[in-house]
């Protein structure tokens, strides 16, 4: 039984963002509660990865406020921003392993920077994290010697070593075979079940991620289309949501609906 926090962990309050003259978000407001796994879905190029970059403060909104744990991401000093980022882990689409470092050095890097561990304790911590993802035997290899699935698992171990309260996954299943997909899903579920960690998963493998998710957020055309639980998403009659969740292609996705079932709000613009 998960313990849900009463206050949302993540809040986007009237967030607008333009990049290269293109509207990415137009007064986007959405709240994500803490303690579960939320699937963030939407058409390609709609700003799902940008959503994650706003959460980590790598991008700042043109207007509006992004809050993580009640703390605004904007207007922070670099030190405060870094202090907040230490509580956030992220699995990048490309794994983003440091090519010049071994697997063990990659996993150790955040801990080496931020934790006052001696070499023995650090090695033990790295080994523990690699054992959790089932890769303790490849710690001396370089990223170029790993398969795509192994790279993702190493990146997951690296993201988890600081025990973050919020974990962001950017397309964790992309370009993976079904067996690796199942292994990664199991890992994501397991990592989240261990603590009251919150996870946001951006993915196009909707059915796979839905099987481990608690909530769903859907973005389209600069705004929120849907926000609610998985059950609500499955029951939704919104064409965009039906297309993504039920693989229905009969519906037009041109209609711009804004619907927040958790709030009981349904607005057609």
């Amino acid at each position: 039984m998960r313990s849900w926090s009463l206050n949302p962990l993540i809040e986007f309050d009237n967030v607008s963002l333009n990049l290269d003259g293109r509207v990415i978000f137009d007064r986007l407001s959405v709240a994500i509660r803490g303690g579960g796994i939320t699937l963030l879905m939407g058409p390609s190029g709609i700003g799902k990865t940008t959503f994650l970059r706003l959460l980590t403060g790598q991008l700042l909104p043109d207007q509006g406020t992004v809050r993580v744990g009640g703390q605004s991401v904007s207007g922070q000093t670099l030190q405060a921003l870094y202090a907040m980022r230490k509580k956030i882990g992220m699995l990048f689409q490309s794994s983003a392993l440091f090519s010049g470092l071994t697997v063990a050095e990659n996993v150790a890097m955040p801990a080496r920077e931020h934790l006052a561990l001696d070499q023995t304790a650090l090695t033990a911590q790295v080994l523990l994290e690699l054992e959790r993802v089932g890769l303790a035997d490849v710690m001396d290899l370089y990223p170029r010697q790993l398969s795509g699935g192994m790279s993702k698992r190493v990146a997951l171990a690296r993201a988890m070593i600081l025990n973050p309260m919020l974990m962001l996954y950017d397309e964790p299943l992309s370009a993976q075979d079904p067996v690796t997909c199942r292994a990664l899903l199991k890992l994501i579920k397991m990592m989240n079940a261990e603590t009251d960690r919150t996870a946001i998963v951006v993915s196009h493998q909707i059915q796979s991620i839905l099987s481990i998710s608690d909530d769903v957020v859907m973005l389209d055309q600069g705004g929120l289309v849907f926000s609610g639980t998985v059950a609500q998403a499955r029951a939704s009659t919104l064409p965009q949501v039906m297309q993504f969740i039920q693989n229905s292609i009969d519906q037009s996705i041109d209609t711009a609906h804004v619907h927040t079932e958790g709030d009981g709000m349904d607005t057609t613009t």
Partner: peptide
């Protein structure tokens, strides 16, 4: 390109310094 610099930023490691 391979997102190593953004990964450092997310890990609260300053790529300019490191």
């Amino acid at each position: 390109v391979t997102e190593q610099i953004p990964a450092m930023e997310v890990m609260a490691i300053d790529p300019l310094r490191r």
